[in-house]
Amino acid sequence: MTADSRTTVHGGAAELVLMWGGFPLVGAGAGWLLAAGAGWVADLPWAPLQGLFETLSRLPEPHVTVGATAVGAVAGLVLAGVGTAERLTVTVDRERAALRCDGRRQEVPRRDVRVVLLDGRDLVLLDADGGELARERSDLDADRLRSAFRAHGWPWSDEDPYRGAFRLWVPDLPGLPAGADPLLRARARAVERNRHGDARELRRELGRLGVVVRDEERRQYWRLTARAVRPDADQPPMVETDPR
């Protein structure tokens, strides 16, 4: 492997074909079924949205079927566009890793990274203090990611070396740095409402305080980094690691 070689990991052309070909077809089919079954559903006394189905059943054919099919196909195209934008692409060489997702590009120098890992579906890069340099949701193949980083000499770990240091967050929990609890409250609301951009920004703000957050079934777990200002001594110990 030459010094300037690099490895790129992405979903590949098959994933794009599936999204741009499959999603519109599924949407069109759903629209056709909606129009075809509108009269039958409107006659069911327990069915929800009966007003909508009654209106559809009264519209003239073939206009309603063509219109519903077209709307479903357009919805599929919109979903395909969102899915394409949210695809993670990872490019790795000996000096840096570039992560591109949802119109954002982040480069992380190799010298700053202590360990690389997959936390569930998240690709995570940690520094020497246990802080997160990057965290991106990933549907990429774990073996391909592992091989790409290891091929260029990056310290990959098959498990989170700090996993045992995480604690479940509840409001007013002692042990957090000043200002962290309000941020965690705000982030809990953002996660509950699926406001992913807000949750990402609040994660960055917590990182500046030395607090690392991970989500599990909409619950927040936290730990402190080595550089966090600890308000008391009752803290989970940081785990010393030697990732290989």
Rank of each mutant, 00 (worst) to 15 (best):
T89E: 13
A80D: 09
R208A: 13
E201G: 11
R6H: 14
W169R: 01
G72T: 02
R214P: 03
V78R: 02
R135K: 10
W156E: 04
H196N: 15
E240C: 04
Q50P: 12
A80K: 02
A30L: 11
A28P: 03
G39F: 12
W169Y: 09
Q220R: 02
D232L: 04
Q50S: 14
S138G: 08
R195W: 15
R58H: 14
E136N: 11
R189I: 15
A68K: 01
G207R: 01
P243Y: 04
V229T: 09
S157T: 07
L206W: 00
R189A: 15
W169E: 06
L202T: 01
A148C: 04
L117D: 08
D160Y: 01
T8I: 05
T241P: 11
A228T: 00
D242C: 10
E192Q: 14
R87F: 08
D119L: 09
A134I: 05
R208T: 07
A128F: 10
R150A: 09
G21Y: 07
A3Y: 13
R150E: 08
F149G: 00
P237C: 06
G83N: 09
W20G: 10
A75G: 07
R189D: 15
F166M: 02
R187K: 10
A142L: 04
G81H: 07
D172N: 14
P237S: 05
D127S: 06
T55R: 14
L118C: 08
D4Q: 12
